[in-house]
Design a protein around this nucleic acid. Structure first.
Length: 115
RNA sequence: UGAGCGUGAAAGACAAUCGCUGACGAUGAUAUCGUUUGAGGAAAGUCCGGGCUCCACAGGGCAGUGUGCUGGAUAACGUCCAGCGAGGGUGACCUUAGGGAAAGUGUCAUAGAAAAGGAAACCGCCUGCUUGACCUGUCAGGCAGGUAAGGGUGGAAAGGUGCGGUAAGAGCGCACCAGCAGUCAGGUGACUGGCUGGCUUGAUAAACCCCACAUGGAGCAAGACCGAAUAGGGAAGGAUAUGAAGUGGCCCGCUGACCUUCCGGGUGUGUCGCUAGAGCUGUCAGGCAACUGGCAGUCCAGAUAAAUGAUUGUCACCGCUUCGGCGGAACAGAACUCGGCUUAUUGAUCACUCAUAGC
């Protein structure tokens, strides 16, 4: 099932800081991906879109697209990773398929996908 | 048809698949299933005003701050409605921080002779005396006066225009206009209109100020509850029932015993507040209107790194088109909650005005 309940999403400020600080980072034009292993936050995910991206509407849009990317591809991701996705400025106004391709590209670089 | 002026509806619809928040129910044991619910006109800026919470259900005075034509609406307002005055526009209509300048103080640069209380003589105009010239009543100069008509400076020169008057002039006199004071009439009132009077008073109060009215402070990170919850403890310093501290300016009044700094240690980013309200819809009545009242119906987000989404298709809308299609669709995301204001922005409809043409 491709569900993503609230309990799987990072909530606390400290957790975000930890993944950002100690996780390995990969990036391309649209996204930045942080991956952290053996943290106590296994199989959790966080999404971030900074003030640079624009107002609340555009930031929300980017976050929702990132969440869909993770949700629809989570079966391919190996267990035990804590992932943080950050949107970059060029992701504003892009359609879903563009963002998904960017996400899959980063996932292959980080070798988080099974098979 | 063109230009304009007001008004300001609506903010694409439906379906499929996958997914999220809350509520309810079930299984059940913290997960799953089912039903249902889920952004705006500005949710924004945080600029005013209320509710609510705590401080004394907040009291007296001063200071400070705010408001400032009139009448009304309202829980309240700096908002709204209806008017009045002033200004702008051919007009529809728009703008308006619009109390007081004889309570007092200040400012009015430069220019100009003179810039504030009845001022000021630079040029000019007029009179008298006098000197010189000659064509013997004219010109030129000097002195003493009069004069605010004319010139020039300025944003503004001490009412304006005209007639009379005068040596020349002057509200010196008169008429009209503006203004002031009084009075009469109309209007709840701002004010408007008439009459009479004496003749005249600069601008600035978004300069201080005066007057009238209003105003205690902080804000949901308010505040309350929980198993230790601004805990409890140690050290240093200070104060002390002759008053610590609080009441976020001061005095009074009230409450009535601690306060500041450091050390060390632990525990929550818990639960409530948190959505039924000056609510929404319809209708009737009153009112020019803002709005008020009655009746009926209805329940309509409650998150907390923050749900309300993603993709696809069909039909509408707009633009381009080789008629196959392709592209576009604004501003913008609830955070205790209402009433406004302001700013951003797609945009009908309706009413009206002006110009031109036709009938």
């Amino acid at each position: 099932m491709l569900m993503l309940p609230k309990s799987r999403i990072l909530r606390r400020r400290i957790d975000f800081q930890r993944v950002h600080r100690f996780g390995k980072s990969y990036s391309n034009r649209y996204l930045v991906l942080y991956v952290l292993t053996a943290s106590g936050l296994e199989d959790k995910v966080g999404f971030a879109a900074g003030k640079k991206l624009g107002n609340a509407v555009t930031r929300n849009r980017v976050k929702r697209l990132m969440r869909e990317c993770y949700r629809l591809n989570q079966d391919n991701i190996k267990k035990g990773y804590c992932i943080l996705l950050v949107g970059r400025k060029s992701a504003v106004g892009k359609k879903y398929d563009v963002i998904e391709r960017a996400f899959l590209d980063l996932g292959r670089k980080a070798k988080i996908f099974g098979r």
